[in-house]
Simulated scan of single mutants.
Amino acid sequence: MAWSILRCDEVDSTNNVCKTLAAQGADNTAVIARRQTAGKGRLGRSFRSPEGGLYLSVLWRGCPTGQLLTVTPLAAVAVCHAIEQTCGAVCGIKWCNDVVLDGKKLCGILTESSLRPDGGAEWLVVGIGVNVAQTAFPPDIADMAASLAMQGYSVSPDALAEVLLEQLTAMRQALPHPQAWREEYRRRCVNLGRPVQVLRGDASRQAMALDVDQQFGLTVRYENGETETVRSGEVSVRGLYGYIE
């Protein structure tokens, strides 16, 4: 499977471009931009996207209903593979879908889709933003953000994009039987065995992160001994070990 690639100097959001292309009938398409003016993160947050990063979104059709929940976390594994292959940096994953390096956020992932009446995806867009060559961040995120260059690793955004597209192809092929990728996600999940705060609206509860289940929910144990498996669409998890969402 080959990606049809659209390269842009500047867009508002590579996800937005992919969604426009989806409305025009496109499939198996990748959009890569040097910078974004309106990058998006989870829960409506913005994602700063200056030149020096890799901003890439992929579009494809027909993802089966049972595979939708696995796409975003497995995309995080694909990012880790691509980074290690291109520059040797060994990354972790902060549940549920942020790639981290040395305790700081290196990459964010946002998946958007259009669902059919049967619950399957008419189309799926996976957006990935990696901090590659940035040498500084604004003061409000400087303590929690990292780039590969700032951590001592050298790779160009274009070289990383090429390998990442190969890894996203491998991820798609693994979706029907993702056991090996799921186990790697568990190994890389930096939350496991650490204290977290489970945020639900204005309420916050401290817990210990125990495991990741088959649908990539995070199982936690609260201070009163109660256990729960939380889902990314229901709550946020704030790690006490380093950067926060």
Rank of each mutant, 00 (worst) to 15 (best):
W60E: 14
S114M: 13
E112V: 11
G119K: 05
D98R: 12
G127N: 07
G62L: 00
P50N: 09
G66E: 13
P64K: 00
V126H: 03
C96S: 14
A75L: 00
L68H: 13
L54G: 03
T111F: 01
C63L: 14
K40P: 01
W95Q: 08
V99I: 05
Q67M: 15
G120F: 02
S57R: 09
W123M: 02
R35H: 06
S114K: 15
W95L: 03
H81Y: 10
F47M: 06
I128Y: 07
Q67H: 14
E84R: 13
G119F: 12
R42P: 00
L54K: 08
C91R: 05
I32T: 10
G52L: 02
S49H: 03
A82H: 12
N97I: 03
E84S: 02
P64S: 09
A38P: 09
H81D: 12
R42I: 01
S114T: 09
E51C: 06
A78G: 10
A121L: 06
P117G: 11
K104G: 03
L54P: 08
L56Q: 13
A30I: 04
V77C: 03
V126A: 08
G92A: 04
I32A: 06
R42L: 09
A75N: 05
L56V: 10
V77F: 04
C87R: 11
R116L: 15
G88W: 09
L74V: 06
E112Q: 15
E122L: 12
G66C: 07
T86V: 15
G66P: 10
R48P: 00
G53E: 07
E84C: 11
T72F: 00
W123C: 07
G88N: 13
T111Q: 15
